[in-house]
Design a protein around this nucleic acid. Structure first.
Lengths: 233, 233
DNA sequence: CGGACGATAATTGTATGCAATATATGAAGG
DNA sequence: CCTTCATATATTGCATACAATTATCGTCCG
């Protein structure tokens, strides 16, 4: 049922997901993002229990988390359904994400150290190799990309940001964007990361913020072009 | 135990709070914000049950919500305690809030209508009357202020923002700031709101965003001055 | 034929008991 | 006196039964 795609998004709370509520969270999330769930589809707690293989208590726990990420929505009468994002809501996600990632990059620029730079370089090395293949390794790109942004969030040292940002980075959107990328687009991403590293090395927060903003907004326009053609946002 | 201070913050999810989990949320929240809770103090679910007067199930529900607002934190071993915000975290709250409220104002400016303007004018009329008294009515100011910002959030028409912003507007911080305001500061707030209304009426999103940003940042500096003296942030 | 009403079924909300896990206590050994 | 390990205690996690709420559907009446 649930595929083995990279599930975790920005955020260090992967843990060992031993807890039933954690497995419920992962399984339901996969069901929604990569499974047979469809936007607007109704979900009952009992059905989710079957999917997750646990009882209602951990399922309710997981659902509340998913509600916060707005992957599921609750009607006035407390019934659950799979979220159905409007174009405006997706645009809004990119806009908010651009603001917050810019802010994260600015903070990280002030707090970066040699060890952090080394780790960023190593991760972006992996990313660069993945995109320079004759047929780019999208999964490898996504994983390295996630690690890169996670690392920046780590150096931003802001618990608030670490809580807010992950909910704005929905992997399916990232994935659809990445699949639409041309080889050149992917290589440009790697170059953006190189420039970010340079900005961090220089301790220039405005530079870092600006690069990050354009990095996200380019992704936004790729997504826009791929999913909605050439209407101007 | 829990005082009768205004509890709800920006957000339309006040409902009728009939559910046990809702009353648990309110009671625990009041205990933390206005009660005898102290930063860092450990909280057990059982203790919270006594405070809320309900069983552990709704308490756990409420705790998860409070965890999202970062009013309570969970240790590595899953134990709960009252959050203890550092100066940096509070500064960060103001910074993020300024960005998001600016964004909300920009969106609202594009979507404002005559009815919304009327409602804003009415609420700011209440606010103005409250602050022009010989001894300003702080509670009245806070309530009208909350309504004013709620209304903007309503007109921003962004479910994401409506979910993210409330967690950044903790009433105790607002309250401490307001108590430090001089009469002139309070009147300046009312004037900011007037200017916001003018920007909305003109449909000028950049104007609205700029006024909102300076509005929040002024509050930030008042708070800073009141709580940490004159060190520059 | 359509709409209000009431009985029934489906769904979510709450309490509670037990299981799993983490912490505290204290005795034994170095 | 300090450390180590085993046992006891405290705390959280999970499953389940039952209560409360909401939707569904058929019936009656206009």
């Amino acid at each position: 049922m649930a595929e083995g795609l990279p599930i975790a998004i920005y955020s260090a709370n992967s843990r060992f997901m031993s807890r039933a509520s954690d497995t419920a969270y992962e399984k339901i999330r996969s069901f929604i993002l990569y499974g047979e769930a469809r936007p607007g589809m109704q979900l009952t707690e009992e059905r989710l229990c079957e999917i997750a293989g646990v009882s209602r208590t951990p399922v309710r726990d997981a659902v509340q988390r998913l509600e916060n990420e707005m992957l599921v929505v609750r009607s006035a009468s407390k019934r659950l359904s799979v979220a159905d994002w409007s174009d405006d809501e997706i645009d809004e996600m990119f806009a908010l994400r651009a603001m917050l990632e810019c802010h994260a990059a600015e903070r990280a620029a002030r707090r970066m150290d040699e060890n952090g730079l080394d780790r960023l370089r190593k991760v972006n090395g992996d990313l660069t190799r993945a995109v320079q293949l004759a047929t780019p390794d999208i999964t490898g790109f996504l994983e390295a990309n996630r690690q890169f942004h996670d690392l920046i969030l780590e150096y931003a040292q802001s618990p608030r940001l670490s809580k807010l940002l992950p909910a704005l980075v929905e992997q399916p959107v990232v994935r659809r964007t990445a699949n639409q990328y041309s080889g050149d687009d992917l290589i440009q991403s790697a170059k953006d990361h190189d420039e970010l590293i340079a900005a961090f090395a220089a301790g220039d927060k405005d530079w870092a913020g600006a690069v990050m903003t354009s990095h996200i907004r380019r992704a936004f326009h790729s997504f826009h072009l791929a999913t909605r053609g050439s209407e101007t946002p």
